[in-house]
Structures are given as C-alpha cells and as structure tokens.
Design a protein around this nucleic acid. Structure first.
Length: 534
RNA sequence: GUCCCCGUAGCUCAACGGAUAGAGCGUUGGCCUCCGGAGCCAAAAAUGCAGGUUCGAUUCCUGCCGGGGACACCA
C-alpha cells in the first residue's frame, strides 16, 4: 500500500459494490484536494446520484457511515458538503506513520514493480547537422518519460533510429563536396536544396575530410560519424544516453525491408500501380494506400519504417513508445495499419506527439536554410539543468514558444530556482547539525499546522507519480515540486528546524529529511541534479 | 478543402468534469535580533464568441472567430 489514497479508494469500491451492487470503473475514487477540503475528497456520491436519480447528499451520508466503520482508526473526520462531496481528513497518526516509512525505505517507498519491457524511441533526428533547440525538447521529454517508466519498475530501453542512408545524407555529402571546391576557389554551383549551415563549411575545412574527397563511400562514413558525434556530444551534456543506435542502413543491407515486403506480398497486401509498389493500408484503417517502392525502384521511408517496427516487435517487447513531432501526425495511421497487417495488436505501439517548438521571431527553424538556434548554444548559455527544466515545463501537446533571451534570463529567474532553493536551504540546515540521523520515534511530536501542512503536501507525491506515469507527462512532476516547494518555504518562514526543544528539533529534522528524499527523487526523474548551495 | 494542437491576468503558463479559476514575471505596499530575503505576507488584474450535454463546463460536444502545424512515388 503506497498511499492512504489507495486504501480509501478500495474501501469506497467495496462500499459501492455492497450497498449499491454496482461496479464503477475508476482507478481512484478519492482525490487530493485543497487542504481546507481535507486530505482526500470523493465525488462518488455525485456519480451515484446521477446514475440512480437520487439525492446526492443522502447517498453521501450513507457512504460516510460505511466509510467511518472501515477507516475509524485512520481518519480524524469525514464531512459532507453540498452538493455531495465527501471530504476525508486523515489522522495525523497515519500521516506520521507514512513519514516514518519514507525515512526508512527512502525513494523505494514511491517506486513500483511493473516488470514490463518497454522500448522508447525518441529524437531520432537525421544526422545531417547539429541539434537545434527544437530537437532538445524531444530529447529531454523522451528521457524524462523513460525515467518515469523506469521508476515504476519497467525495463526500459532508449533507442535512436538513425537515418544513415538516403537522399538527405547524399545531399549533405554533396553540400560538403561543393564547399570543399569553393574553398579551393573552384567555380561550383551549390546544390539547390543543399545544407547551408556553418557546420557544413567547418566540415569541409577539415583535413581528414578533404583527404577523402574522391572516395565517396568513406567520405560519407566520415561525415556521418562527425555528425553523430556532435549529436552524442549534445546529448551527453544533457545527461542523455541511448541504449541503442539503430541503423536504418542495416535494415536494407540485412534484407529486412525486402523481407517484410515479401511477407506482405504473401498476405496479398501489396499491389503494383503506375510502376510503383503499394501497400493496401486502407484495409487496416488508413485513409489511402501508401507507396513502399517508388517507380524508380527506390524504397520509401515508410517501407523502412514497417521493417523497423517489425524488428522492434520481434525483439519481444511488451510496449513500444515513439515520440514524434506534430508533422508526423498523419503518419500514425499508416504505421499502425502496418502493425495490424503484420497481425499484431496495434496497441502495442503508443505514439506520443510532442508539439512544436516555435521561435519567437516566427521564423522557421531549418537545417538546410541554416536558420536555427543550436541546442549546444542553449546549454552553454543556461546550463544543462535549466535547459532540461525549460523543456519540461509544458504539456506535451502544447506549443513551446522559444525565446533565447528569455531562456537565458529565466536561468536566474526561474521556477527551477524556487525548487532548488528548497534543496539549498535543507542542505544548509543539515550542515549545521553534527550528526544528521533520523529517529522515527520523534516524528510523533509533529503537530503544528505548518508541519502537518508540509507533511500532507509531501504525501501527495504518489498521486503525482501516478498522473505522470499514466499520462506520460513529466510536467506533473514539476507542478508537484513547485507546490511542495511553496509548502516548504512557508513552513521555513514560520518554524525553525533547529529549535531549543530537542524533541521538536528532531521531529522537524525527520520531516525535512523526508522532504529532501522527495525532492531528490522528483528531480532525478526530470534528470536534474539537486544543488547543495546556490 | 480534410486533419491535429492552441486561445485563461499586461506577459509566460496552471487547474482529475467539481467547491472561492491558481502560480511566476511585471506593477503597488509590508517583512531580516533568529537554520540562506533566489524567500514570506498582502493588493490590483483573466476563461475569444454563440449554442448544447450536466446537479455542476476553463475542461466534453457542435458552430464561428483568431494563431500555429500537417496533409508527397519527401525524410
């Protein structure tokens, strides 16, 4: 039993079943509320009332009586408010018991043991240039989601799908070759849709690259390696590490694409039209059939993607998660139809769309045009922690308007520092105590409203985790930490931890120790290091 | 034309279908004899428009208005 909330929810579920002979689908029937409304509040009487066409207050009164029987030792009071809220005030004894459990088992108290194999693929930017601030969002959000999944006990693998073959790569190589010739003063026409960014010129000036000018295969390899290393460098700065870099090239050289096409052919899902090969994706819910091999014989990106997803599924993974940009929205049906065609449950794949990062200037970021703000510049300017935080403050589905000046400024004037200030204050207190130990027998001396308010705020962490986990929205962790930070700062203003009364002092040390555990835990999910000093 | 995301305070964002719509920045005014004032306390200030579902709508549905994006034998 991680939280008292679960206990209450189970109790309510039983009561509904017994007294009303109903089973209502809802994971948690009691939710945390504003403290004035108690620790938990349930709307179950209202739901039942609308279902049974009865007076909600009457139903609430009945539930209250049943609930009091079950929870008599655990609650202070249960009150009913119009139009039918049931508000539950947990007894401080139970709160203190939970506090002691947290001190004993630390972050394990909050962890779960869902033993599922999950593969999360994210970022997967083409290795045709450095990462921009737009990519940064995909990278950071993906990593944070993976952290949360791991925290719940999943066996998580982070994967980067590397587009190491195809037209974009050829274009990049052509662009480098053109710059090499330009540098020699030769008269060349720069490829129309080539890459114009500075990094191309930099690559073209590198001696080890120029050496390979006439050996296109080795040149391509060298340029690719350089680009991938750049990407890895940026990721490392943010503390992100992929378990697997999956090469698109190996799909083709390994005949996996041809293999999957043959498989679909055997199922009679491939046909020829206008000289191209088409996949009958409409049979599986897509809006139109899609080309997998063009009339010129070249395989489409979609063909590789079918093979790629088949490969992932064949690795015996329970859940696949892909993070895509909103420009891939129309692509979801296509890939899911392919999974269905291969006789798999399409729900094995969860696609999360991370909305755009737009520039304040309204100019579009483009690698080819060279108009973009580099992720590495951002990290350099504001530091990795503020960078990560900046990306995680928005819901996945919300646009993130990017303003570099604001981001820089925000590094000093940022909710992150409101949160970090808690850590700094706690460490500062602990530095003043010679022997920081937590003796749970003192926790019972916590009884001031400020202390209990902080403890109550702390104990909502499991609920925050549930929300973040099920919605795949790391932003909930931030919202929670902000709330908890506010509770802590308020407590800190009014009560001294280092009190003349030894008992009080020790009790508050316990409380603050638990706050520290939760902050470290929450921040580590976001991939941010708690500070000791600021 | 079809599809997706977004319209909340001057600005940037919150709010599981719930109770008095919350924060930060900015503005105005208080608080350091005391563990770190990057903090605390207080004031002014908001749901684009019109319907619908509901005991209850910022949230769900429909239409409109406004902003952004996607709709390839591109990747």
């Amino acid at each position: 039993m991680k939280s008292f909330q679960e206990k209450v929810s189970h109790a309510l579920e039983k009561i509904i079943k017994k007294d009303y002979n109903l089973f209502l689908e809802h994971p948690l029937w009691a939710l945390p509320q504003k403290q004035e409304f108690g620790d938990l509040s349930s709307m179950v009487a209202l739901k039942l009332a609308s279902l049974l066409k009865k007076d909600p207050l009457e139903i609430a009164a009945g539930i209250k009586i049943s609930l009091e029987k079950v929870l008599s030792k655990d609650v202070d009071k249960i009150e009913i408010l119009r139009p039918g809220f049931i508000n539950i005030f947990i007894s401080p004894k139970i709160l203190i018991k939970s506090l002691n459990k947290i001190l004993k088992s630390k972050d394990k108290f909050f962890r779960s043991q869902i033993k599922r194999k999950v593969l999360i693929e994210f970022l997967s930017a083409n290795p045709t240039g450095p990462l921009s601030v737009a990519h940064g969002r995909q990278a950071v959000v993906g990593d944070a989601i993976a952290n949360v999944l791991e925290f719940f006990g999943n066996d998580v693998k982070r994967e980067y799908y590397l587009n190491d073959e195809g037209r974009q790569i050829e274009r990049l190589v052509d662009s480098v070759l053109a710059r090499i010739k330009e540098n020699r003063g030769e008269d060349v026409v720069f490829p129309e849709d080539g890459y114009k960014g500075e990094y191309v010129s930099a690559t073209a000036s590198s001696l080890s690259i120029i050496k390979l000018e006439l050996d296109r295969e080795r040149l391509t390899k060298a340029i690719l390696k350089e680009q991938i290393d750049l990407i890895k460098g940026d990721l490392k700065a943010l503390g992100i590490k992929f378990d697997n870099w999956f090469s698109q090239k190996t799909l083709i050289s390994g005949k996996k694409v041809e293999g999957v096409i043959d498989l679909l052919k055997k199922k009679s899902l491939i046909y020829e039209k206008d000289g191209a090969l088409w996949f009958s994706s409409t049979k599986f819910g897509d809006d139109k059939d899609r080309v997998i091999k063009k009339a010129d014989g070249e395989l489409t990106y979609f063909a590789s993607d079918i093979a790629y997803h088949k490969d992932k599924i064949d690795r015996k993974i329970d859940k696949l998660i892909n993070l895509w940009g909103p420009d891939h929205h129309g692509y979801i049906k296509r890939v899911k139809s392919a999974i269905k065609a291969l006789k798999h449950d399409q729900d094995i794949l969860k696609i999360i769309i991370i909305q755009l990062v737009t520039l304040k200037t309204k100019e579009r970021m483009s690698k080819r045009a060279g108009t973009m703000i580099l992720l590495s510049d951002l990290i350099k300017d504001v530091g990795p922690d503020a960078t990560r935080f900046y990306y995680l403050t928005r819901r996945n589905s919300s646009h993130l308007e990017f303003d570099l000046d604001l981001a820089k400024e925000a590094s000093f004037n940022n909710p992150l520092y409101y949160i970090q200030y808690v850590c700094a204050r706690i460490e500062s207190i602990f530095r003043k105590i010679e022997d920081v130990s937590f003796n749970s027998s003192f926790s019972k001396f916590l009884k001031d409203p400020e202390e209990l308010a902080l403890l109550r705020a702390l104990l909502q962490f499991p609920y925050c985790l549930e929300k973040a986990y099920h919605s795949q929205e790391p932003v909930f962790v931030i919202e929670f930490l902000k709330d908890l930070a506010a509770s802590f700062h308020k407590f800190y203003e009014k009560k001294r931890v280092l009190d003349d009364d030894k008992k009080v002092s020790q009790a508050r040390t316990n409380l603050v120790g638990a706050v520290r555990i939760v902050f470290h835990c929450g921040l580590s999910l976001l991939g941010i290091k708690p500070v000791e000093r600021m």
